[in-house]
Design a protein around this nucleic acid. Structure first.
Lengths: 188, 188, 188, 188
DNA sequence: GATGAATGAGTATTCATTCAT
DNA sequence: AATGAATGAATACTCATTCAT
């Protein structure tokens, strides 16, 4: 029961923050959207910051679990990338509001504990990096700086989503999967 | 004389905003850093928002002017990309604080007129897109969705910078130019 | 409950604004006087301006309602004036602070919506005017420009109050009713 | 030469303050209107407050000098009032901006020295009062409280001007003189 | 005298958070 | 657990005044 309410608040927050941006979002607006009183929010979150943290947490957890699974599989790097990108765009299309937040909110208060977000933001590229390293070792792909390339890939995915959202051209996302994959396969 | 003071304030703002983030930056801190009174800021900018806008404007103008020059040159897309990326990383290394701001500040107040920033944010990918279109037509590169790929490239560049700044591994930027270029040349 | 708090704030504001003048009154002083936090003021008023507006509204409403009642009565203009003036001075003596505000605050911010105040300021003379017109028609009083005379009467009442407050001679108000009435009855 | 500039600034201030109100008037606007630099204002006035004080001073001086002259004349109170009112409305029509200020600006900062304004504001009713007292003694007019009636007359004159300005009906002023005079003559 | 950029004390307003009900 | 009125620290911005040129 109470878990459902936390989820209710998270979803309301996603909607409002996607529209207005985190710093321009008032807790009262989130409460309105969720149909609860402001005070109720604080029964499930210690602070406004924590809501954002939780949004990131939920979303990244999906990606990371999937990436870890992939990492363990005995398939080519191309197939791994293919599956990850498919999953990624599927999630994006599934929830554009969350996507908006993931690509836009990059300014975290120093005072709050955003360490979990930051570790997530680091962890995805790190997993990509380890995939690449493995593939380089196996000589599946050419020698390359896996740290840089992992950052590049992570950023590239965000760039495509940003482009689609900024120009309000969501059809772009339909073709994105294939285009991105081809580019990456050639690139690495 | 007055132009110098506006520039002085811009530089102070860049430093503080890079460190604390725009929303966590107080105008009084910028004034302190610039060695002027708060009121003086408002002799050169109408609002705090406008300072951020100006920072983006100055920086994007460099990129866009350079890209426009390149676009007119009769050289291969590979050379164009090469020159642009060289210029890009040169500017980044030249001013890491500005770089930090460019990759982090993506939440613009709706009330203010950030149209100029937004148009800049659109213009760079658009220029890349037109370069790609031209190259596709000339059959320099394979058929591809230039809109998506332009977004991808723009995002990828930001991803690399973000990675370097987030992990505080600035050496990464030294190799980035070559790695990114190779990836892009193969990718397109 | 909440209505009581709005009234509490209004009364505190009346006291401070009467003493210091609207433009020299700080919201924090009003809050102190009311025994609430500054923020609480803004739960009941949108702005400092709106407090002043509300003060006028409350006070004028009393006068206007009374005038409208009188207007409907089948009594002579002399009796109407007599009753209105009696009521007026009674209210004044009842709350000198409000009186002070009514006669002193005549500079309304253009940015705010003071239309309601302005309409009140027009309405009282207009009601007086219609009373006079009726009396002229009935030949109770001589032919005269009712617009001018209404303005004159409204101003005269303020002049007497101003005089009493400025010279801090409140006893003046005790005789004012009779003196003013005699003057008006002769005048019209 | 310098006297001319002080006058220039006074006239500019009258125009702006009449339009926007004293508290909503910026010194920079006055400077603009006068075609001088802000700093120049401070060569002729010690403060913004002093400008308002000076405006009142100039205007009241005219009235008071005239009243004093009248007081000394051996004419009936009716003639005195008649001449004063004629003079008054003549001045008003001559400069509506000043009139606007005289009727509207009643909130004086306590910190500044507005004593001269206040004494002027007192002095006119006092002179009227002494005229009335003399007339009462001479049995030109009935027994009455001259203090109250002087306040009443002073306020009534303001009321008529306020009415004309508020309703933007300046034609009213043309008839005002006669109407007011008749009313007063009957009233006293 | 004239200038106008620089100053910084002053203030209305906001909004995340609390806590009595 | 839920509520939402009350809180008050925090802060962008203003504008009268100064003073070096």
């Amino acid at each position: 029961m109470t878990i459902e309410k936390k989820e209710l608040i998270r979803q309301a927050a996603v909607k409002i923050i996607a529209r207005d941006g985190f710093y321009n979002t008032k807790t009262s607006k989130i409460a309105d959207e969720a149909g609860v009183a402001v005070g109720t929010i604080y029964n499930y979150f210690h602070s406004k910051d924590e809501i954002l943290e939780y949004i990131f947490e939920v979303e990244f957890e999906k990606r990371i679990n999937y990436l870890k699974e992939l990492d363990d599989k005995e398939i080519s790097i191309h197939d791994k990338l293919s599956l990850f990108i498919e999953k990624h765009f599927q999630e994006i299309k599934n929830n554009l509001d969350t996507a908006q937040i993931l690509v836009r909110e990059k300014e975290f208060p120093k005072t709050s504990d955003f360490s979990s977000i930051l570790s997530y933001l680091n962890e995805i590229p790190l997993l990509l990096e380890s995939m690449l390293d493995e593939a380089i070792e196996k000589e599946e792909i050419r020698e390359q700086n896996s740290t840089i390339i992992a950052g590049l890939i992570f950023g590239a995915l965000q760039g495509v989503v940003e482009k689609a959202l900024r120009t309000n051209n969501l059809d772009l996302l339909d073709n994105a999967e294939e285009e991105v994959l081809t580019f990456f396969k050639n690139g690495i």
